[in-house]
Design a protein around this nucleic acid. Structure first.
Length: 447
RNA sequence: CGGGGCGUGGCGCAGUUUGGUAGCGCGGCGGUUUUGGGAACCGCAGGUCGUUGGUUCGAAUCCAAUCGCCCCGACCA
């Protein structure tokens, strides 16, 4: 993409309303624009990141055997009256009335809809286990939206629901989600720590939240330092294997890690050596629940078991805050100059920066590298504006692409271009013909 | 919802106390000179001061209502 043909409305000055780094940087880099309190338009650059995160979420869901579908944003109040939550959910639920006076709501979550779909079409234990999910916009009418997309009213969430014939099977689904979530976050270059959590209004008694450490987080967390060393790496995981999933579950839940809601100071002191105790702020980026028959009973979701008896299905639900992750990743990865994108979610893999825009040789070299990168499936962002070097560097640093190829007549005179890494500024000179290949090698390691 | 604050060119702000017909910086457009870390100069365009009503000879400024937004708190993916 050539910058002169793209649309990245960067701001030199920080908008007054932005308090935290991610909000500030998303506004300044032209990723989002606020449309109303807690509601945002996703500008081209932000939209690319959102899509990359959504892609990773989808890939990992499908890898774990979960089935994508798409439910609507607007739902009929009837189903919610049936589950009893139309009254329980409270003011956070945006209620709408159509021209016929029928009550609708903008879905804050989808347990009722999915249960309705399930009970209408599934009747036998033979069709289980089943996990359905979708990535859809949600609306929760927060009293006070804040922190940009981190606490918006409208937000993009992946929410999934598992249906199992009994508790044992549902617990495996729970563990399987734990594993797939760990892998999902790891693939985004994030350290998200599972922590025992409250179940809140969703109900049930098994729940873990996934938290990303950040000073601006809204949760206070306590954990054993050793959990940070755990990594799935390139383990080959059989998601259908009960032992594999429960072993990983145990591995990650053995070290103490809890949010302030479930924190037990005595247990913390007893089970974590003093040198490994850590307390921090953190951002919640996902949560998994097992809640048994909480919805299947009131809504009559049953299947016939082996003996022909009707039994209520055991369910769980799982969520990943897709739009929130964009902010969370920035909170976890930025510096005073701007964003520092991890390779797996960056809007563009590399930026080409032409410092000598009017030098036809420099332009030719940039175009050659551009073409080579596109051939390798790595579309760069080429800053071909007629700007001074300083402005181009500042913009590129702000946008935060992980790699930059700097082309200028000065280095071209020596037959090289400069390849530099955003995270630490380290750079090397390479001949232009090798630039695309080097970028391809770097990215090969991430996919 | 309780407490605090703010709405003035695209962005950041001054002007409001003490009414007299709107200004600065950035950005935009044209031009000249520049060109490896947000350039300099010259010129130009752009605002019914959130909205409505009131007071007044006259309102960005005073009064009332209303809409929107932000911050702290309780709530939350």
């Amino acid at each position: 993409m050539r910058m002169t043909r793209y649309f990245v409305p960067v701001l030199k000055e920080t908008p007054a309303e932005a308090q935290i780094a991610s909000h500030r940087l998303m506004l300044r880099s032209g990723m989002v624009r606020q449309a109303a309190a807690g509601i945002y338009s996703w500008m081209p650059l932000g939209y690319r990141v959102l899509k990359r995160i959504e892609d990773i979420v989808n890939q990992e869901q499908i890898r774990a055997g979960h089935i994508p579908l798409l439910m609507p944003t607007l739902q009929s109040a009837a189903l919610w009256r049936e589950s009893g939550r139309y009254e329980d959910y409270g003011e956070e639920m945006l209620r709408i009335c159509d021209r016929h006076g029928r009550d609708l709501l903008y879905g804050p979550t989808n347990e009722e809809l999915i249960t309705d779909i399930f009970r209408s079409h599934v009747n036998s234990y033979r069709d289980l286990p089943l996990t359905l999910y979708h990535v859809q916009w949600k609306f929760r009418d927060e009293i006070r939206p804040r922190y940009g997309v981190m606490r918006g009213r409208e937000f993009l969430m992946k929410d999934g629901y598992n249906f199992d014939v009994d508790k044992a099977s549902a617990i495996h689904s729970y563990n399987r989600h734990m594993v797939s979530y760990l892998r999902t976050y790891e693939r985004m270059g994030l350290k998200a720590i599972p922590m025992r959590a409250d179940t809140g209004p969703i109900g049930g008694d098994h729940s873990h939240e996934f938290l990303v450490l950040a000073d601006t987080g809204e949760s206070e967390v306590f954990f054993d330092d050793s959990i940070l060393e755990l990594s799935l790496g390139d383990r080959n995981i059989d998601y259908d294997c009960v032992q594999t999933c429960s072993a990983i579950m145990e591995e990650w839940t053995a070290p103490y890690s809890r949010t302030d809601e479930t924190h037990d100071e005595a247990l913390y002191r007893a089970s974590v050596p003093e040198g490994r105790r850590r307390q921090s702020r953190a951002i919640e980026v996902g949560q998994i629940f097992y809640f048994g028959t909480k919805y299947s009973e009131p809504m009559g979701a049953t299947v016939s078991d082996r003996d022909g008896r009707r039994v209520h299905v055991h369910m769980g639900s799982h969520g990943i805050g897709v739009s929130r992750l964009v902010g969370a990743i920035i909170e976890a990865s930025h510096d005073e100059k701007g964003i520092v994108w991890p390779e797996p979610v960056t809007p563009f893999p590399v930026g080409i920066l032409n410092l000598s825009q009017r030098d036809s040789n420099a332009e030719a070299v940039c175009q050659m590298i551009y073409g080579e990168l596109v051939k390798k499936g790595l579309e760069p962002l080429y800053d071909d504006r007629d700007e001074r070097a300083g402005a181009k560097f500042a913009t590129m640093d702000l946008i935060g692409l992980p790699w930059r190829i700097t082309v200028g007549s000065r280095s071209l005179a020596k037959g090289v271009v400069e390849l530099s890494r955003r995270s630490d500024g380290e750079s090397e000179n390479i001949v232009p013909e090798h630039a695309a290949e080097r970028i391809a090698e770097i990215y090969a390691a991430h996919f």
